[in-house]
């Protein structure tokens, strides 16, 4: 793998770590397998790209994208809690619906952002190379979200949210409105995912309606890899683990794509298969470690 590919993987790892944190929030903290993120990532990209082409400040477009994602998550949560639709199905319904909405938002299958001002423009104007600027900016975003989430998870509402994912019977007996916790958790999660989508679009230079395919699995892969590397005994460790897991996952993908096995050369089209294989390995990894007589 070249130095350039390595930096690219780190950059991707950081920007997608925001998405992975969203997946962690639903799948792990809330125990709500939310599949709507496959739709909310391109939603974030679409909203941000549209606003940028309309001349809106790129940072403001990221905020708007986050809000849009929050709304998408809110719909999934309400489908589940108010209409009693199974959580998996509620997410799938939102995801499918968002595909059409994203097309409507953009007005076409993709919006190129070449030549427009993006979040990187002010940093690059200081004479910093585009790649370093992107890594730096994404690292700041990841750090802020991590600090926010660790703080949030220790507040009264955050504790109740974690307990909802752990023991619903107990939190109800302690007077927690679990529907409200699911609403907050799923909405917040999709807000992070859409924020990630907005930044991804600006870094790639375009928003595409199909860019969300495989988001959930990639996020889950990052969460699981993070857990395999760093034990998730405390909230702080778990959240940092997700960011590290996201970077390791992107490095693994970049490495897999660079390998040539005789006549077989993997192409970006094989990405989803590679992701699925990485998730299977990561899921079975603790079991294999146990069999080999390792600790834990």
């Amino acid at each position: 793998m070249s130095y350039f590919a390595f930096l690219g993987a780190i950059e991707h790892g950081l920007v997608f770590s925001l998405m992975a944190i969203g997946v962690f929030l639903t799948f792990r903290a809330l125990d709500f397998p939310d599949l709507s993120v496959d739709g909310s990532l391109p939603l974030g990209a679409a909203v941000s790209a549209l606003l940028i082409t309309k001349g809106v400040d790129p940072y403001l477009s990221v905020a708007a994208a986050t809000l849009a994602g929050f709304g998408a998550g809110a719909i999934t949560a309400l489908l589940n809690t108010k209409l009693k639709i199974l959580n998996l199905l509620a997410g799938i319904l939102t995801m499918i619906g968002l595909y059409s909405i994203n097309l409507r938002v953009m007005g076409m299958p993709n919006i190129p952002l070449l030549g427009y001002e993006t979040v990187f423009t002010p940093i690059e104007a200081m004479g910093i190379s585009p790649q370093v600027a992107a890594i730096g900016l994404f690292a700041v975003f990841a750090l802020v979200i991590c600090v926010f989430l660790v703080w949030f998870f220790h507040t009264d509402i955050g504790l109740a949210l974690r307990a909802t994912g752990d023991n619903m019977k107990m939190v109800k007996a302690q007077g927690v409105n679990t529907d409200r916790m699911i609403f907050f958790g799923v909405a917040l999660s999709n807000g992070f995912v859409a924020m990630s989508g907005a930044l991804v679009a600006q870094s790639l230079g375009f928003a595409d309606v199909n860019m969300g395919i495989g988001t959930v699995v990639a996020g889950l892969a990052s969460v699981i890899v993070g857990e395999a590397v760093l034990s998730s005994s405390t909230v702080l460790k778990a959240v940092i683990g997700v960011v590290i897991g996201s970077m390791i996952y992107r490095l693994a993908v970049a490495f897999a794509l660079s390998v040539e096995l005789g006549p077989i050369k993997l192409s970006p089209g094989d990405l989803n298969l590679i992701t699925a294989i990485i998730v299977v390995i990561a899921l079975t990894f603790p079991g294999i470690r146990k069999k080999l007589g390792g600790a834990k």
């Binding site: 949030f152 220790h154 507040t155 009264d156 509402i157 504790l159 109740a160 307990a163 302690q174 927690v176």
Partner: peptide, 13 residues
């Protein structure tokens, strides 16, 4: 969590 039973939960530690 138990100590807040019956009161509103917001963003206090």
């Amino acid at each position: 969590i138990a100590a807040k039973r019956g009161s509103k939960r917001w963003f206090r530690m």
